[in-house]
Amino acid sequence: MRLKEKVAIITGAGSGQGKASAKLFASEGAKVVIAEWNEENGKQVEEEIRAAGHEAIFMKTDVSNEENVRNVINQVVERYGRIDILFNNAGIGFSARSKYTMAPLLETPLEDWNQILGINLNGVYLMAKYTVPIMIKQQGGSIVNNSSLNGILGVTGADAYTASKGGVVALTRVMAVDYGKHNIRVNCICPGAIDTPMIAEVLSVEEIAKNYEAGPLGRVGKPEEIANAALFLSSDESSYITGLIMPVDGGWHVV
């Protein structure tokens, strides 16, 4: 029960890494807010957590919309009176190829560039903008931002995505400096290839899959492995850690 009675908001908790984290956090005693855009997925995760005997509530959330974010945060505070943990997990990537251009810079339309950054980077900014004041009032909290291996390496082929994730890394560092005096810790996870719907297209390409297998651990990761990292950084077990940029990638970043 490492998160007993703590209130945790997890964005993008309707599938993949967010879903795994929501279930794990709830099993560790947290009151989980499933801040998810997809209503069907969000309600399903809520039902699964409650069926397991834990506490969770779904709130439809568009992290790129300031008014919506503000309303969600207000609802959480009205319901629970506090926010102890914010896991900024929501983002778009390869699974959104049919809607947004995932390509090198010269081939990326400005509209797609802005929309990708609007979700992946602005979403982190907006959720933090309205959560941090609550954490300041209660003199403590933990924020975990989910970036990507693209945020720390020059991975080609999806430059808007890479720029957005690099921004998350930089924002994590400056937030850690700005709000440490209020006992607010801010850390960042940089997942490598994780077996989720977001990279299903990539994993179906044999040549790329072989590249991932060439990493030190020789495999792709599981959503639960990201959830475990997020749990550690959210819990008091990491009470002296802030500003950390943590690759969770099977060692790919050292190859």
Rank of each mutant, 00 (worst) to 15 (best):
G192P: 05
S239V: 06
E5G: 08
A26V: 11
D84V: 13
V168Q: 00
W252M: 00
A96G: 02
I116S: 03
P223C: 11
S27D: 12
P223N: 06
Y80A: 07
A160P: 00
P109L: 08
Y125T: 09
A163G: 08
L149F: 03
P247N: 11
T156P: 04
Y240E: 12
A128S: 15
N146H: 10
G243Q: 11
A56V: 14
K129A: 11
S15Y: 03
T11R: 01
S204A: 05
G251K: 13
K23I: 15
Y179K: 02
L171Q: 15
V45A: 04
R50G: 07
D84N: 12
V72H: 04
K222Q: 06
G151H: 01
N228F: 12
Q138Y: 12
K43H: 13
N88R: 02
I241H: 00
K165G: 01
G42P: 06
E225P: 10
L244D: 10
A35P: 07
P247A: 07
E67T: 11
K23L: 14
E46K: 12
S239Y: 00
G215R: 13
I34A: 09
A90V: 10
L149G: 04
G42H: 05
A52D: 15
Y130N: 07
P133F: 12
G167K: 03
I189D: 08
W113R: 12
G93Q: 07
S235L: 06
E107G: 02
R185Y: 03
Y100T: 08
K19F: 02
W37P: 03
R185T: 03
V72M: 15
G123V: 02
E39R: 14
I134T: 10
V177T: 09
T242L: 03
N68A: 07
M59Q: 09
G167Q: 05
S235H: 02
V169S: 00
